[in-house]
């Protein structure tokens, strides 16, 4: 790895670390509130047999994934948008960095933020009193967190490059990821849904991602864990190739 790329990567990580009160803390706080409010209020009323664990533990992987998705996407999309808006993206475009290096710098930066948030939520839930949540397979868990944060960070790069306004970036988050996540089984098991709704859930990639993390943490396998991993890896690879191509050609960022 050369100094040029490592410096850029350091800049991207340093950016969200410096702004941790805006980037890390709110994500942890909102997840904590979800867990406490939903877990405590609803959890006590739902029989444990439905989920093979307590309801509070059941929703943890979904909430961690929700945070990973939002944070990794927001990081790369807003970093690029800000750099475009204030024109300091030019410093990166004129630097001796290839399109692949620039896209990887943004992607890894965003993925790190997602990974940190996801990991911190899981750890927070393990050490929280009154929960029986635990991580059964840390290696697989980190692999899921990494591939999903990588996927959405790469998608954030694509949208960051293409978007003309902050509005467009927010729209993806509010109108696409948020519904897909909520309908991806964060708060319920697939078995609780009618057949038609189950079939719809199965075409939602976020459902597979959440299920994968639920398997790696709680060993609950509703659908194939291997397919979940393949989906995560496929999307992360596809979006990385597209993001890299955009920077290589300068689409929408070079005249």
């Amino acid at each position: 790895m050369n100094i040029e790329f490592l410096t850029f990567l350091r800049r991207e990580i340093y950016r969200f670390m410096v702004l941790y009160k805006q980037t890390i803390v709110p994500a942890l706080l909102s997840s904590l509130l979800y867990i406490l409010v939903f877990g405590e209020t609803l959890g006590n009323k739902i029989p444990k047999e439905y989920f093979a664990t307590s309801y509070m533990s059941f929703i943890v992987p979904g909430l961690a994934m929700m945070s990973v998705i939002t944070q990794s996407y927001q990081n790369s999309a807003s970093s690029i948008m800000q750099a475009k808006y204030l024109r300091f993206i030019e410093d990166i475009l004129i630097a001796p960095l290839s399109g692949l290096q620039v896209s990887l710098g943004y992607i890894i930066g965003g993925a790190m933020r997602g990974l940190i948030c996801g990991w911190a939520i899981l750890v927070m839930c393990i050490i929280m009193p009154n929960t029986d949540f635990n991580v059964d397979n840390w290696f697989l868990t980190m692999l899921y967190l990494l591939t999903v944060s990588w996927t959405f960070s790469a998608f954030g790069v694509i949208i960051g490059v293409i978007a003309k306004s902050w509005d467009e970036i927010g729209s993806f988050s509010n109108f696409i990821f948020m519904p897909m996540t909520f309908l991806g089984g964060v708060f319920y098991s697939l078995e609780m849904l009618p057949n038609w709704a189950q079939n719809i859930s199965l075409i939602n990639p976020i459902y597979w991602m959440i299920s994968g993390l639920r398997y790696s943490t709680l060993s609950i396998e509703e659908i194939s864990n291997v397919t979940s991993l393949v989906i995560c890896l496929s999307f992360s690879t596809l979006f990385t190739i597209i993001a890299s191509y955009l920077f290589k050609t300068g689409y929408k960022i070079k005249s």
């Binding site: 050369n2 100094i3 040029e4 490592l6 410096t7 850029f8 350091r10 800049r11 340093y14 950016r15 410096v18 702004l19 800000q82 750099a83 204030l86 024109r87 300091f88 030019e90 410093d91 990166i92 004129i94 630097a95 001796p96 960095l97």
Partner: peptide
């Protein structure tokens, strides 16, 4: 390059901006 339009990163100190800039070129 010193471009016509001011394009300074708003997140970091002046010194940090210049250190990053040097690093982008392998210093």
């Amino acid at each position: 390059l010193s471009p016509q339009e001011i394009n300074l990163d708003v997140f970091f100190s002046i010194r940090q901006i210049l250190l990053f800039q040097a690093g982008y070129y392998g210093v």
